[in-house]
Design a binder for these strands. Structure first.
Lengths: 348, 348
DNA sequence: CTGAAAGCGCTTACAG
DNA sequence: CTGAAAGCGCTTACAG
C-alpha cells in the first residue's frame, strides 16, 4: 500500500507521491540539512542570501515540514486533546469550536474525540491522546478520570472533578437555577415540578440541588415533582418524565426543565396531553433551545454561553502550558430571557 | 518547559513526567527493543513466555507506544483529515461525527478542522493536514481546492468539485427540491417564492436550479421571487430575503426555503409582517429544522440525513485506501415530511 | 555563518 | 525465536 522507502511512486499513479523532505530542499539549495532547517525556522544564524535560496527551493518543491518528525525530535507535539461526551450535541459542538479556535490561534492542533458518555470509551480516548503525545487535555468527563495521565495538564469543563485538574470551567448552575425558580415564584407558582438531567454530572447535580433549595422556599414540595431524564438528557426521556409528572392527581402548575432538550420533550408531553402553556402549566428551561423564540409558545430560558465554555477552558490550559501555576475555577454567569412560556406576555 | 532528554522530572512536579519508552519496557523485560516491539505487535515470531514478560513490563510501566515515532517509521499516520466550513453547524457536526465514528472503527484518527467558509483558511487547513501526513481527506470545500495535495485521496462531501476527487457524497438535492415544489403545486400554489443559499456551493446551485425547473411548470415566475441568503445561509439573511419578497406588490402565496436556517428566518419574517402560515403564505423547508414539529406552525420539510453524509463519505475513503479504484458519486435520497406549514392538516 | 553528527522512539530487514 | 543495526525526517548542541 504505502510506497516502499526508496521506491519512488509515479505521481500519476494511485499511490501517494513521496513528500519532499528537508534533505531534498537542502540539496536543491546546495546547503546542508542543518542550514536548511535553520533557514526555514527563521534562525538569525543564517545569511540572508542563503535563506532566500532555501526558501525558494522549498517553494518549488512544495515542501511541507513533517510535523511528526519535528514533534518527535522536539518532544512537543503542539497538539491538545479535547474529549466530550458527544461532539454532535449543539452545546459541545459549540464549546469544542470555541476551544479549537483559541488553541489554533496559539499554534496548537486540536484532537477531538467523543466518549459517548461511556467511561470505557473515555479511557480509550485518553489513551489514544496519550499515544499521540498531546501537550494537554480539555475534558468534559463521563467518568473515565481514574486513569488520567499523570503529569499532563488537564482542564475540566462543564463536567468537573475537583482535585485532579489544572483548572475548571462551568456554567453558573446554581445562580441560573435560582433565576428560573424565583421567576416562577413571581408568577405565583407554588407547585413546581422539575425535569432534571441524569444524576452524576456536575450540571445535573448542581442544578437539581439548587432547584430543591429554591423551590423549598415556596413551601410546596410533593413526591413525584422531582424527576430525571436519561444519561443523554434526551428529549424522549424528558417527555416521559414530564408525562408521568402531569398524570399525578395533583400535577404541578409549573415545570422547570434542566436543559433545552428536556424542555422540548416536556413541551411535547404537555402538548400531547392537550394542556396549554402557560395557562395550564408554565414552563421554563435552563438552556435556551434552538429557535426558542419561535416555538409554540416561545420559551422562557437562560442565555446560552456554549462557545464561551470552550474558549475559557482553552484559555486556562494555555496559561498552564505557559507556566502559570494558578488552578482557578471559572463560572460563567447566565441571564434570564423572558418570553411567553412562563406566563409573561413578552413579544418574541 | 519540556523535560530535557535524560533529565528526569519529578512525577509530582509541575512538568510532565517522561513517557516510558520501548527501550524501558525492553530492559525491564530483559529483552531487546526488537523483541519487545514484536511482542507488543503480536508478531508470531516471539515465544509465548517472552511475550508475557514484555506485556507485563509494559503494563507495570504504563507504556503507551509513541504514535508519532511509529508513524514516522512506518510512513503511515493512520490519520484522516476532515475539513468542513464550520463544525459547530448542526449539519456538519453530525456529518463529522458520522465520519469520525466509521474512521475510528477502522483504526484511524480523525483530524477535524473548520475552514470558516474561507478559501484561504481552507488552504491553511489542508497544509496543516499535509504537515501531519494524513492518509486521506474528507472535504466539504469552501473553494481552497486549487491546492489539493497531489496523490492524496480526497473524498468530497456536501460540497463537490467533480474531477479532482476520489469519490463524492451529497444529498439528492434535485429530487428533494422537486418533492417540495410538487407538493406546493398539489396545494394549488402558482406564485412560489424561493429563499436560497448563497450561490457557489453544490447544494445552493443544485437546489436553485431544480427549483427553477420545477416552478416553471406552474407557469408563474415573477421577478423578485428568487432570492438568496448570505454565504453562511444565516437565519438573519433568510429573514431579510423573505421580508423583501413579501413586500412585493404581488407577493408569493408560498415560499420554499433551501435550508432549515433559511426557513426559520423566513418564518420569523412572516411573523413580523403579521401574516399567518399557511393561510397567508405557505412555507416548506429543504432541511427539517431542530424541533421542526414544535414550531408554530409545525414545518413541512425533507428528512435529515446528516450523519449518513459523513458515514458514506468515510466509507468511500476507506475503500479507496484499501485499494479500490472506483470513484463513485453517491446521492442520499430524501423524503417529504408533511406537517402544517404547507397547508396540510397533519397532526405533529 | 555553516556542516557533520547524534538522537527523538519506533519498526523491520538481516544475520544468527 | 532473538538481537544489532539502520533509518523514518526532523532539530540542535558542537566544532569549525
Amino acid at each position: 500500500m504505502a510506497a516502499h522507502p526508496g521506491h519512488v511512486v509515479d505521481r500519476a499513479g494511485g499511490a501517494a507521491a513521496r513528500h519532499p523532505t528537508l534533505a531534498d530542499v537542502a540539496s536543491a539549495a546546495g546547503v546542508s540539512a542543518s542550514t536548511a532547517s535553520r533557514a526555514l525556522r527563521a534562525s538569525p544564524l543564517v545569511r540572508d542570501e542563503t535563506r532566500r535560496r532555501v526558501l525558494a527551493a522549498a517553494e518549488t518543491l512544495g515542501f511541507e515540514p513533517n510535523r511528526l518528525a519535528r514533534s518527535l525530535r522536539t518532544q512537543s507535539s503542539l497538539s491538545i486533546g479535547i474529549v466530550v461526551p458527544d461532539v454532535a450535541t449543539a452545546f459541545w459542538a459549540a464549546a469544542v469550536k470555541g476551544a479549537q479556535d483559541v488553541l489554533e490561534q496559539a499554534g496548537y492542533l486540536a484532537l477531538v474525540m467523543s466518549s459517548e458518555r461511556d467511561p470505557v470509551r473515555e479511557r480509550a480516548a485518553l489513551r489514544t491522546l496519550r499515544a499521540h503525545r498531546v501537550d494537554g487535555i480539555l475534558l468534559a468527563t463521563s467518568g473515565g478520570h481514574d486513569s488520567l495521565p499523570a503529569g499532563l495538564p488537564v482542564v475540566f469543563f462543564d463536567r468537573l472533578v475537583p482535585g485532579l485538574d489544572s483548572g475548571r470551567v462551568a456554567l453558573a448552575n446554581r445562580e441560573g437555577m435560582v433565576l428560573l425558580v424565583d421567576h416562577l415564584h413571581v408568577h405565583g407558582h407554588a407547585r413546581i415540578g422539575y425535569v432534571g438531567g441524569h444524576p452524576g454530572s456536575t450540571s445535573a447535580d448542581e442544578r437539581r440541588a439548587a432547584f430543591e433549595a429554591a423551590a423549598a422556599r415556596s413551601g410546596a414540595r410533593r413526591p413525584g415533582y422531582l424527576r430525571s431524564g436519561d444519561a443523554m438528557w434526551s428529549e424522549a426521556s424528558g417527555e416521559r418524565a414530564a408525562a408521568e409528572m402531569l398524570s399525578l392527581a395533583e400535577p404541578p402548575t409549573a415545570i422547570v426543565a434542566a436543559s433545552d432538550a428536556l424542555a422540548v420533550g416536556t413541551l411535547r408531553a404537555i402538548r400531547k396531553l392537550g394542556r396549554r402553556v402557560p395557562e395550564d402549566v408554565a414552563l421554563v428551561s435552563f438552556d435556551d433551545p434552538v429557535s426558542g423564540d419561535l416555538l409554540d409558545p416561545p420559551l422562557t430560558a437562560l442565555t446560552r454561553h456554549d462557545r464561551e465554555s470552550g474558549e475559557l477552558a482553552a484559555g486556562l490550559l494555555l496559561r498552564v502550558l505557559a507556566g502559570d501555576t494558578e488552578r482557578p475555577e471559572v463560572r460563567i454567569p447566565l441571564e434570564l430571557i423572558l418570553r411567553r412560556s412562563c406566563g409573561c406576555d413578552a413579544r418574541g
